[in-house]
Design a binder for these strands. Structure first.
Lengths: 195, 195, 195, 195
DNA sequence: GATGAATGAGGATTCATTCAT
DNA sequence: GATGAATGAATCCTCATTCAT
């Protein structure tokens, strides 16, 4: 895939994000995405097998950015509590960065069992394992309760972040999502803390 | 609305739950719902304005059962911690009771901003306020931390329950959802507890 | 058909005139006509075989009023020119009397070849023959040109009246249709006059 | 619009004329028109916004042919009486040329107030003004009566032509419509003539 | 690779008509 | 006779996908 090709794929994905965020997956048409991307309808099918594959593409790219773009590098150092704080901060920053993308992650991705499964079995699992790793580290360090199952805890953390993100989408005010990081961390730390 | 009429509306909603849970809102047709309900296509439109209204109907009935069927009676007595435990228990029991309905609540309802808005502005708000009320009571009783904003706490509680429910849907094993109530309560109680 | 029955039929026709004039034959539904008439949908079918029969009913009643209600009595006396003047006057008065009815006569009746045929072979023919009779009388009296075929002349007269009536419908100002009688007569008399 | 495209649009209009003349606008389906035109149903919508737009298209093309194809060139020369004769002749020739098209002009176009308005406010007005121009010329030349309002006279002329055309459609014999031109002109000339 | 005109299956919705009460 | 709930055939229109250029 050379640069030109890649550029066209990128433009299609960018266009899809906007259109899907605005009107929903079923409310958009391949034609509209093509028009916004500045390509012909048929061109879409040179880069994606079908309409659903565009959504998968959007989603994959988002998760690549999400996970590749920071979360993985967290493991480098610091105590578990700090890491947790960083995860919360980063999650809300990344999701809050691009409203259209956030709509897709929080709303459009939940389209069907099929999609949710895809999500939960692949990229979400990866992400949850990173969080669970932090929990395990915390338990080893003695700062997090030992009686909580790490993967369960990771899901609770994700649940909190997800809820806050969805809430932010729906509020549709001009607040920054990351402004809520402090509160979320505060809540989660207490739930996880030892002693 | 007499018994006959009510019966037909009920049958349509029941059929819709099954069809939508199975194939998604956009994957089902009005015809399929009608066939399963044992009525003619046109009959659907005597009870619902359009296809979307069926989904709203499904959702409303579920929330009526959900809120009417127990959560409201919680306020009667007991300390805040017990009430929270009961909410957690009841939420997971009710959602876990009917897998098809759960799929709709956890997946299909999140279809679009439009639906999420409907959800969040109406019944979810009502529910969150009940939870927030328990938090306030706990704070007054001195068992819950006073430094947490009650509505924020309520959202965290809901986020945890929601995550567990979605996780259960996706796991698709034969576990009972309510079996996870203990762990969730354990997590949330610690997050909220004073001291 | 007793008085009660007749009353219901009348109410249905009255309702049909209003609905059809307002929205067109295809733009109305049997249900709407029934609602306006204050009867049940099914009741319509006790009085009319099907939807089209309602239009035929509306049309027949209108023509009965039209022809029965004056034109036939013209023959009684007077010279041909006066009779022509009276026909023109009466035609425009009757059509202009009820705007809804006029819309049906000038617009809705022209729905299809089928209807136009019905119209032209029955009531219109009857009417044209009355006019042609006046022409013949005028020719005999020597006031109308003898070189014009009476039925052709009658059609020209009707064409003029019809055009003026349609024009009035479309103008939709508050003018009275019969105000145009003078001009029309003026035009037609000259066309027909001998010498 | 290149040749291919234009060709397809033409084929759709041709097919529509036949289908609509045969069964009426509401008696035809988009599918039938498509089949006769030899295109897919969806193709219709590449050329027309909806079913009604097909009828408008049919009507516009007819009026273009009608007005563009002769009547406008009349103004060139000759006295008013000759011009009137030519208009009558041309009108009946053009309408009589294509029976299907004539059915649409005389019957289908009168379907509804909506259509009649469209007709009367646009192309008919244009046409009436041409006729009125001839009347004015005749009045200036002193061959037409000065006491007739030109636009009113034009409507009378059109009413006569329209009536004859409709009559021809309904007669459905094998006569040529233009054969009636002589009589119509004879009638109208006398009505308009000065002196 | 790129185009976009063409396809045609699919689906929501309407509404004339029926018939059990 | 009267009702009006129920029917289901019919139709307009959309849109993902294809393929000749």
């Amino acid at each position: 895939m050379n640069r030109r090709t890649d550029d066209k794929r990128t433009r299609i994905l960018d266009a899809a994000v906007v259109e899907i965020a605005r009107a929903g997956f079923y409310g958009t048409t391949v034609s509209k995405i093509a028009r916004r991307a500045g390509v012909a309808d048929g061109t879409i099918y040179l880069y994606f097998e079908n309409k659903e594959a565009i959504l998968v593409g959007v989603f994959d790219r988002a998760m690549d950015r999400f996970i590749g773009g920071g979360v993985l590098e967290l493991g480098s150092g610091g105590d578990a509590s700090t890491l947790l704080k960083e995860i919360v901060q980063l999650h809300l920053e990344l999701v809050g960065e691009d409203h259209d993308m956030a709509v897709i992650l929080q709303v459009e991705l939940r389209h069907s069992l099929h999609f949710m499964n895809l999500f939960s079995r692949t990229r979400l699992r990866e992400y949850l394992e990173i969080i669970a790793g932090v929990v395990v580290q915390g338990q080893r360090e003695g700062v997090f309760r030992a009686d909580l199952e790490p993967m369960f805890s990771a899901k609770m953390v994700f649940g909190a972040l997800d809820q806050v993100a969805t809430d932010w989408i729906l509020a549709d005010d001009n607040s920054r999502l990351s402004a809520r990081a402090e509160d979320v961390f505060h809540f989660l730390e207490r739930a996880l803390a030892a002693g």
